[in-house]
Design a protein around this nucleic acid. Structure first.
Lengths: 331, 331
DNA sequence: CTGAAAGCGCTAACAT
DNA sequence: ATGTTAGCGCTTTCAG
């Protein structure tokens, strides 16, 4: 491997000068600079990033911690982070945590050990510990969820309003006995979406009924079981708001299996996009989150934070969008 | 930041000994080792990975180059790579190339500059140039596609057989005028799948007809336009084999829009998985690739190659699986 | 504006 | 088995 000294010798200048030319951090005699560039080309020199990182005590790596890229929500979010990162000269290390705290901690340790410049994290839950990162001065942006005790940049979605939008749409469509399948109590997103649902009911003067509410685990099985329990318990409902994409799929499967017709017997609206949901029959109504933009925004915030570690923390809230389709179109 | 010298001083041993204990590469007096471990804990020491990488001239980073994680085929593949990588102690840098050669070259340069231990690549096309990687001794595994001129490890799918399976299934279901929408001529996967289609027709003694074959770009729009052209040109066909997931979606959309009934007027079978395709109506028949396993296998090969740079190259071929659903179930 | 020299934190060779 | 020493390749003082 060629080193900067080789280039320096070839160009007849000092290594310091080569470095200055290559990094454009200081003014160098144009004639010398030209010689350096020529030497670089002639020798086919490539700077060694690792050595640079050691000396600068900074890498150009970001870690992005999500529960699972397989979830379309995160797929697109990660894509946004990567595109944003590339724009600022960072590469993105993909870290799937499966909502597993040990895995999460492991990845945080790696980010620390490898001196990564920053990390974007969708915390497994409120107990996620990023204190080591903060202590080490690593830039952190949380995405989708907020951390209770730590003051870091966050990119969020207005979950409450989104859920209200969804529920209001059901009410507007004439449904009145509306069930809600949301996520675990310890997850802020689940609770916010539940509140939005309740707010909508209240606005319409529709009575609340605890029997209509189910907490599941944000996964397909969870949605399936929650729907099954609603049906098995003979709960009287004519529509359901499901608080994330995977659970919506599960709930719909359960309905299909039991030959409950959507949207006539039961109207369905989901939260989050599902790829190609328009090909489902009936096609699914849903409230979409700007997942790609979430990723882009997080990247922007992280890059800013790295450049300016002392600026006050930012909290960005993006809005959702309603997509009415067949599953809420009552005849 | 704490360094190894600090630990050494605290434990009353040499830095070399600390290093030996931490890396378990040599036998150390258990008593000394205990002191080292204690010192590490007391001081809260974390080894600096960048320094280690510089000294060892190797990182624990892999780059995975795919066209787009958004494509479910790659989503799951990348997930497989990550899980495999983690098992061997590597982190995975996600690189979306969008089939763009410049972007691809850019990422290869980054992998080289950052001394990444290896790269897993699904080449944009035959012209992808990995010679710099080979020259630098970086371990390379290609996935999904092979590179014409370079002898590197590859993990592939038996595309020809898979396509034959799909087409045979259509023939078994009684369809006889079977169209084929495949990918660009310069992509090996597209041509292999076309050959499989042709082989199946031949086995059944069904005449070939060039009018039934379309080359599109492996994207949703491509599938849509190809289907539109078949219909617009009044080509006589009763079924179609579509050679990848996105094009299948496009083709089905076109059929739905024009109110062509599937599977009665036209039977449809796709190649590649589509998430939750069982919720489509009609549900889609398809031939699946073991995408996750593809990623795992590539990770295994890459780890092996890094440990043993001189072993002969391996070419792994995985098999597809037929999933008959409603879209080929003629009444 | 340019060069010399030191050192980022670690590990591998060598010496004991 | 342990310690000493040198050096991975770069950037950043510090002098001049």
């Amino acid at each position: 491997m060629l080193k900067i000294q080789d280039v320096a010798r070839h160009a007849g200048v000092s290594a310091a000068t080569v470095s200055r030319v290559l990094n454009g951090r200081a003014t160098v005699n144009p004639e010398l600079a030209a010689r350096v560039h020529a030497a670089v080309v002639e020798l086919g020199y490539r700077p060694n990033g690792v050595a640079r990182n050691l000396r600068r005590r900074q890498t150009t790596l970001w870690a992005v911690l999500v529960s699972d890229v397989g979830n379309p929500f995160f797929t697109s979010l990660v894509r946004g982070v990567e595109d944003g990162g590339r724009q600022f000269g960072y590469s993105v290390v993909l870290c799937n945590t499966d909502e597993n705290r040990a895995r999460e901690a492991e990845y945080i340790a790696v980010a620390l050990a490898d001196n990564m410049a920053g990390i974007i994290i969708s915390p497994a839950d409120d107990a996620t510990d990023i204190s080591a990162l903060v202590a080490a001065g690593t830039a952190v942006v949380t995405i989708d969820r907020e951390l209770a005790d730590t003051d870091v940049d966050a990119v969020l979605v207005d979950n409450e309003k989104g859920a209200e939008q969804a529920t209001t749409h059901l009410l507007d469509s004439g449904y009145r006995r509306i069930a809600c399948i949301t996520g675990p109590r310890r997850m802020s997103t689940a609770m916010e979406r539940l509140r939005g649902y309740q707010r909508a009911l209240k606005s319409f003067g529709v009575p609340q009924d605890r029997a209509l509410i189910r907490h599941a685990d944000f996964r397909e099985d969870g949605g399936y079981s929650a729907m099954a329990s609603l049906l098995d318990e003979g709960v009287d409902f004519d529509a359901v708001f499901v608080a994330n994409n995977l659970m919506t799929v599960g709930a719909v499967e359960c309905l299909t299996e039991r030959e409950v017709t959507v949207p006539d017997q039961v109207g369905v609206i989901g939260f989050d996009d599902i790829p190609w949901a328009r090909l489902f029959r009936p096609s699914l109504s849903y409230v979409s989150q700007p997942t790609y933009e979430l990723g882009r925004a997080a990247a922007q915030l992280l890059a800013d934070r790295i450049d300016n570690p002392n600026r006050p923390t930012t909290r960005m809230v993006l809005q959702t969008e309603l997509h009415p389709r067949e599953s809420t179109r009552r005849k």
